[in-house]
Write a protein that binds this DNA or RNA. Structure first.
Lengths: 262, 262
DNA sequence: CGGTGTGAAAACCTTCACAGCG
DNA sequence: CGCTGTGAAGGTTTTCACACCG
């Protein structure tokens, strides 16, 4: 959400819910697979299973796009592929620049999923002069000095940041100043951008942390008995001086006493 | 979100809302940065800005953990770091295996964000015999034949799949059979897993597609004139008969953290 | 019949606004 | 007085269940 200000008033009527938009690529992928197997039609039930959602949700999602199905039959695969592609804006070509060609940047450059979906890697950019000219995934790396020129020449509006966190904000600023209006950020930082610029972030370690949360819960309650349930406080990293703010209410159940020995 | 299986309706467990859990790592990151700068306390307003959310949301989130703040003052940084870490289960060590050591797997292996947050790369596994023994990010790659043994020996419960889509499901099956109960999937496939196993997916091209959607909308209305490509339907692969509800106009915005540091 | 499309209900999440504590 | 903690309001997303049509 835009933290600063200026929210877009949550849409006029023509709007497709964000949650639905986020699932369209999923449907598209499943449909593409069906298309490759020359399956002509598919029911909401089948498609939902292939996409990993439930069928009511899928039908509701599709209802925002229009009535593209046939009652009693299902959906025409090819037709739906086209409609969703169009809705997502994938019927046009999107040149993309990737900034920061480390392992991750290289992985992204070589990722087949881009090319196959309307995206074209217009340029790979890195600040290290030693990288300049070196081909990665068949594309020569260009030096970041030329960032503005590259973006202008190719009319790039989407940028991918795969740099270290420390330089992500300045790379972002340069991209935005050069005309990029959508950014996919892999650096573990909150980017600040002017209004009108979209940022999506992918943080690898955040995903793992969410898994850890659930994993911990499993250990604590699944096994029929009380094996090792208590989240007993291990050594706290290092407590300042605060005496564990006492805690009028508590956290989970047991509650953690005061701060720990260091 | 979990793919494949049925949801745990957040039923009886010690319910912290999913949305809140997903933000805890964000807060943790911001807090860690403050901690490194030896900032002793922080207000919800400041911390929210640093994490890219709004302060009401942050306070609400924290309220699920307990009352860890001090009215009129704010939150003790060190103490909060500990509480959130504990809540996320990061006060313990989580051995992780990464399967599929291509560019992406290598990037993950070398990603600092793991080690720094309670995760330990226990093993790198690849099916290519040529890779076996080769060190990646300082860790020797092991052959996938030994997958089960490695998982058992290290007590690994979290697996990362960075293989091609074609083999992801079988890798997943083997991981699960060997005892892994949380999976982070980078392969563009829907994994099906038995109940009790969590799957989170990261799909690079999906994120880009969502950006493209918003980008397309911007082009269609923001600028005073038409400079950009329009959503005119190109050759439709093969249309049934429907005319389709034409394109629309604006859309909501995704999440644009627009934060200004002091 | 079988399966879509959709109002209506339920669940979930965010934002507001302010009481109340330090 | 300032800032947290939180009921209540408002919004969004999911699920239900069934009318309706090919």
């Amino acid at each position: 959400m835009a933290t600063g200000r200026t929210h877009r008033p949550a849409t006029r009527s023509r709007g497709i819910p964000e949650a639905t938009v986020a699932r369209l690529p999923l449907y598209l992928r499943a449909l593409t697979a069906l298309s490759e197997r020359s399956v002509p039609t598919v029911s909401s039930e089948e498609l939902a299973a292939a996409a990993g959602v439930n069928s009511a949700k899928l039908r509701k999602d599709f209802s925002y796009l229009g009535s593209y199905g046939t009652r009693g039959v299902g959906y025409d695969v090819e037709y739906l592929v086209y409609q969703i592609s169009r809705e997502l804006g994938l019927t046009q070509d999107w040149p993309v620049v990737i900034v920061g060609i480390g392992n991750l940047g290289a992985a992204l450059a070589g990722y087949g999923g881009f090319a196959s979906r309307g995206f074209r890697v217009a340029a790979l950019i890195d600040a290290d002069p030693a990288m300049t000219g070196k081909p990665v995934a068949g594309i020569p790396v260009q030096h970041s000095d030329d960032l503005e020129k590259i973006i202008a020449e190719d009319g790039v509006s989407i940028g991918v940041i795969a740099t270290p966190a420390g330089v992500a904000q300045q790379v972002c600023d340069r991209l935005v100043a050069a005309g990029v209006t959508s950014i996919l950020n892999f650096a573990p930082t909150v980017l600040s951008v002017p209004d009108g610029v979209d940022v999506r972030k992918v943080d690898l370690s955040i995903e793992l942390q969410i898994l850890a949360f659930h994993e911990q819960r499993k250990a604590g309650e699944e096994p029929g008995d009380e094996t090792a349930p208590q989240p007993v406080p291990p050594a706290v990293p290092q407590a300042a001086t605060r005496t564990a703010a006492d805690s009028g209410r508590k956290g989970p159940d047991g509650d953690v006493p005061a701060v720990m020995p260091a």
